[in-house]
Design a protein around this nucleic acid. Structure first.
Length: 521
RNA sequence: GUCCCCAUCGUCCAGAGGCCUAGGAUUCAGCCCUUUCAAGGCUGAGACACGGGUUCGAAUCCCGUUGGGGACGCCA
């Protein structure tokens, strides 16, 4: 029997980072065992589905490189993979449940159910439907319908005994049947609910392993009930713990961005991302520009492999030290039995560390390829880049080295792409390094040396400065900062000589002149 | 409220009775390197929630307490 796993997103418009981890586990498990990983669209709730809300989810999967063997846009032998298009099958299943007595028509109104629920809560016991409006015979149904009521279909759950099953991460699990609800599987309007659809689909799509978030653990008995009532062989279950919020044990939620922003590492990656988005004139939807959502990482230039590697280790480990995994290594080493039982908090700082290492491992060509689109969006480089632009990007990325931690960080160096007159001065740096006694004349004299320096490369420039410093009888620190601010506008940046060489003599001289003029005025 | 689950450095993991004076990663602090900023190197701080058992021996097994969390929909 070949292993088949699935991830079943409902089209909400965004891909949650916790969802990705669950999907990754599914993907890895299927790949590990030479099986198939499929995507199924859980869109039974028409009201909740916004148009085109599946797009960002599929894009996210593609970006991450988590390919699906069957599902939306790729089809497959069991198509369609949209629950909204499988009503025929669900209708059959409901008829079968009804016929076997595993389900019944129910005529209670929402208000009546709510009243029973309220009573139960008042009496401090778990709610259990009285079955007061249950119709098990056509005669009973006719009586209710004569009163204008419409039937939903509920599961007739056992009221005694236990539901026991083995969970691949949690071990043996038991639930008391008597505590289970008579869940609705078909609404009064004839549409079907998740549990029914899920049980039917897992069977129809030949899913062998249901690997999903632990939130679904308590749903398992009712799904098992449906599965067995329908005569299907149940899949194996593996319930993965949820991903908790940074510095907390609460479930990570997209809606609590404001609260997470109080966590300094979370705030740091958010702020960095926001700065990149702003500089690259990226139109960000506040809805998804959120480190809880995968889109965020794509937008600011993270490496998918870094995200995946980090997520893999959030609740799973191989041993006490292996942390770096390539795709192939992940696939080769992954196993369900090393998934933790406790929830794990999302740690943005550690994700950033993985990203940094991954970026460092990339060759210059890859880094240039990652950085270029950000410069294009910011309007610094044309699409496609001119030859000179291409070379400039390469030089800057090379010189910046591992200062570029996410691809969007290349926008920290606009001065290499701007016209001389557009370079902005950092006011504080300008005052500190240029507006002080001796700075201007020193800079002017150095300009003279610079004008004669040839070749204009980093090594020669460095020699030029050292000669200048010796001749003046000063320390290098007395002039180098002034040069940096004059030429780049900033107090910080990569190697000064590399920077000067990249800009070339004309730009360097023009910028020094501009700074000098600014000082004189 | 009812049911269920979880519990090792701030965080993520290792640990399945002696290998643990608890290991790795990340974060943080300090030092080194250095024209700035990064990176890198070195050093350091930092945990078995508590109480009882079981055992020659417990972070590991059992019970309880405490704390934290999840599920309780005609949502998925």
């Amino acid at each position: 029997m070949t292993v088949r796993t699935r991830f079943a997103p409902s089209p909400t418009g965004y891909l949650h980072i916790g969802g990705v981890r669950t999907a990754l586990f599914n993907w890895l498990f299927a790949r590990r065992h030479g099986g198939q990983f499929l995507l199924r669209v859980d869109d039974t709730d028409a009201e909740r589905n916004v148009a085109a809300a599946l797009r960002p989810i599929l894009d996210g999967f593609r970006w991450l490189g988590l390919g699906w063997d069957e599902g939306p846009e790729v089809g497959g032998p069991y198509a369609p993979y949209y629950q909204s298009q499988r009503s025929g099958r669900y209708a059959e299943a409901v008829e079968q449940l009804l016929a076997s007595g595993a389900a019944y028509r129910d005529y209670a109104t929402g208000g009546e159910i709510q009243a029973e629920r309220d009573t139960a809560r008042r009496e401090k016991r778990r709610f259990l439907y009285s079955r007061g409006w249950m119709a098990e015979t056509d005669a009973a149904a006719a009586r209710f319908e004569a009163g204008g009521r419409r039937a939903s279909v509920r599961l007739k759950m056992p009221r005694e005994g236990v539901c026991a099953f083995r969970d691949l991460v949690r071990g043996d699990v038991e639930f008391e049947w008597g505590l289970e609800q008579d869940h609705v599987v078909r609404r009064a309007d004839g549409t079907f609910l998740y549990h029914l659809a899920s049980a039917v689909d897992d069977h129809d799509f030949a899913i062998t392993h249901v690997i999903r978030a632990v939130e679904h653990l308590s749903n398992t008995p009712r799904q098992l009930f449906i599965t067995t009532a329908l005569g299907y062989a149940p899949p194996a279950f593996a319930h993965v713990p949820y991903v908790a919020a940074p510095g907390s044990a609460e479930k990570l939620s997209k809606r609590k961005l404001d609260r997470y922003l109080r966590h300094h590492e979370f705030k740091a990656i958010y702020d960095r991302g926001a700065a990149i988005a702003e500089r690259s004139r990226l139109a960000v939807a506040p809805e998804t520009f959120n480190p809880v959502v995968v889109d965020f990482y794509r937008a600011v230039g993270y490496e998918p492999d870094a995200l995946l590697n980090y997520l893999l280790l959030l609740g799973w480990s191989l041993d006490d030290r292996t942390e770096r995994f390539t795709r192939d290594e992940m696939v080769a080493r992954f196993s369900l039995d090393r998934i933790n039982r406790a929830a794990a908090s999302f740690d943005p700082g550690k994700l950033a560390a993985f990203q940094e290492r991954r970026m460092q491992a990339l060759g210059i060509d890859d880094r240039v390829a990652r950085a270029t689109p950000f410069l294009q969006r910011a309007g610094f480089v044309r699409t496609p880049p001119a030859e000179a632009e291409r070379a400039r990007v390469r030089d800057v990325v090379q010189a910046a080295g591992d200062r570029i931690k996410v691809a969007g960080d290349v926008l920290d160096y606009p001065e290499f792409f701007q016209a001389d007159a557009d370079v902005a001065y950092d006011g504080k740096a300008f005052d500190k390094r240029l507006r002080k006694d001796g700075a201007a004349p020193l800079l002017r004299r150095f300009r003279g040396r610079l004008a004669e320096t040839r070749p204009f490369d980093a090594a020669t420039l460095e020699r030029t400065l050292h000669d200048f410093v010796d001749a003046e009888g000063i320390r290098i620190g007395q002039v180098i900062h002034a040069i940096r601010v004059a030429v780049t506008g900033k107090a910080v940046g990569f190697g000064l000589f590399e920077g000067l060489a990249i800009l070339g003599p004309d730009a360097c001289l023009a910028r020094i002149d501009r700074a000098l003029a600014q000082l004189a005025s």
